[in-house]
Write a protein that binds this DNA or RNA. Structure first.
Lengths: 203, 203, 203, 203
DNA sequence: CATGAATGAGATTTCATTCAT
DNA sequence: CATGAATGAAATCTCATTCAT
């Protein structure tokens, strides 16, 4: 038995990847355990050997994904950083993550909006994320760099624009110019869409 | 023969309303046809008399919802309107719609991110919406009111921030101060988060 | 209201024809009342206006068909006819009938072999037919023209060969040379397949 | 681990046997999957574990049945056999098979006359059978033992008489004298019904 | 470690028939 | 005469989970 053949390679990882792809493509409910096992090229029983059930596999998936995002954010943000730099880097890290973990991202978007246990868990994970971003916003407002506004609006708006833009471009086939998108999102989030007339009036 | 008695009210409509409520409350998959029939106070067979199946009922729902949004947008935007006013009203109509048709929106949001046939239909509807918003952006850019940027980024970003903010607040129980949210989104989208220092530099 | 338009023409007859075609194509159970009504271009309720139910429509169909066959046979056979002529004419009439009422014929073949009420009724009709043919055979045996054999075997064998041959050629597309088939069946039934060696031995 | 206990006996085989019995007793449509599962002493889900659905179970059944008939025919016919012996044995094997597999035969007979996909499969199997019989007829005609006639007429006529006679007697309750029927069918097929007058004239 | 046959609760769907108009 | 919306009993099928090997 050659343990180095792809077939022998970590069945748990294969399950993880197959599940991520399928949940993203068809949603949690429409994806069957049979399909996951088949896509991962393991027997159905193996799913239940590694995970307590479909639900646990799902949570494992999402938690892993969010943990990765969190680690990346933590690695990027330094104490004492200018909040504008923090936000700039945050957008950058987010776009990178969304592009790399497209599947996890779609899963979160698709499954976060109900009231089941699973969905509450997702909300929790999102809230953890909002907490981090919220602290940056607070700092900015304290330092009078950011317009004093409702933190929750700012966090969810930033997340919403970033994630939907990323998803939109990933759904289209063809190469994506991430640098350009990042720059435009940054400008949009920092300065808005309206060209400054210099007279302080928007309209 | 009083056609206005609740019991005489079009059973199809009753089904529509029951389904919208239940799908939003519990999601498409978790809602059973039995429940829909019971909530609509019709026999189970009646669901299949009016709709080819659960799936078709769902699509009917989503199309109706999007049609309502489109009609509201069309009724609000006038030719020759300043594009800033148009955008302002767009945000307003969207938030209103999200709040009023939370249930349908949640369905759309939860089902729009995959790649199956059902989801393609939703993508199509979203693209129609983007087309309308895109025209406003183009006008603004032409009139040098809006910073020249990628239309697609602007449209999806606007939709993303609006929808995720709305969803976030609707998820939390308790009353929502929509006027405040609307104002903040407007400010954010028009002027960005960074306080203008007057010297033209962001950082 | 022009009563002469095809659409207004005898709805009962239209139902009859649609049902015959559909029962023959798909069998009794697989054919739905909706389909019959649609094919006949009448409302579903109309089926129940003219017939007590699906079962009755079926029986009406088969009885009509068998009655036609019986009438044709009665019109062809004369008292005092040579039994060989009778049998010749019987084969002829049968082939004609099978070709003309292919549908009814397929229905009988497909639905006669169970134990439900419907199928017992069919058996009854077949037995009426066998009775007539049986009388010819009896006469032939009495007159020492026909080899004395079990009447039931002779009747069912004659019916079996005629109906399956007819069906086989009707199922193939393209024109059928009925005269040739009739002649061959006659030879086969009268003289068998083996060429007479004149020495009285078959083998 | 005694594999020979009835309970250990392949559940797929138990399903097969239960289905064959029930389909023949009550017909395909009237037999429910619940009944089949109950008769086979397995859970309903087990039916769907082994077969894609009721339809597939049915086809599996018919194919098995036809395969048995084909094997029996192949085992009986030897190369170089006199074609009269071949035909004699063919009738014998067919009658034996019809008597033994009455249930499967009834299914085939009841379902073979339509034009749907299911029925096309049956037509295919019948054509295979006709091909074998056809070769015997050809041989006989070449050897001037069989009256030169349309092969198709001979094959379908032989099948038709055999099957309808068998069915007729199986339908009646009570014991059947198969030897007598076989002998009569043989005489009929070989020599026809008319007593040879020696003068070469039929009429 | 891993398997896959087996399960059964519960879902979706079908369809002959009824009935008010 | 004819309709077609409505019904509900009964059917088919799905699928997460278990468990003996």
């Amino acid at each position: 038995m050659n343990k180095n053949q792809p077939k022998d390679m970590d069945k748990k990882r294969r399950l993880f990847e197959a599940a991520a792809r399928l949940f993203a493509e068809k949603g949690f409910e429409k994806t069957t355990v049979d399909e996951i096992a088949e896509a991962a090229e393991v027997a159905k029983g193996t799913v239940y050997y590694h995970f307590k059930g479909k639900e646990e596999l799902f949570l494992f998936l999402v938690e892993e994904g969010m943990a990765i995002l969190m680690r990346r954010i933590a690695a990027t943000l330094k104490n004492g950083m200018d909040c504008r730099v923090s936000l700039k880097k945050l957008i950058q890290v987010q776009l990178e993550f969304f592009a790399e973990y497209w599947d996890v991202c779609r899963i979160v978007l698709a499954e976060a909006w109900g009231t089941s246990t699973r969905q509450e868990k997702l909300q929790e994970l999102l809230n953890e994320y909002y907490a981090i971003v919220g602290r940056i916003m607070e700092q900015g407002i304290r330092e009078r760099v950011i317009r004093p506004q409702d933190k929750e609006v700012l966090c969810t708006a930033l997340f919403g624009m970033t994630v939907l833009v990323a998803l939109h471009f990933l759904q289209k086939s063809g190469p994506v110019d991430w640098a350009r998108i990042e720059e435009q999102l940054e400008t949009l989030f920092f300065r808005g869409v309206v060209i400054d007339t210099g007279n302080g009036k928007l309209l």
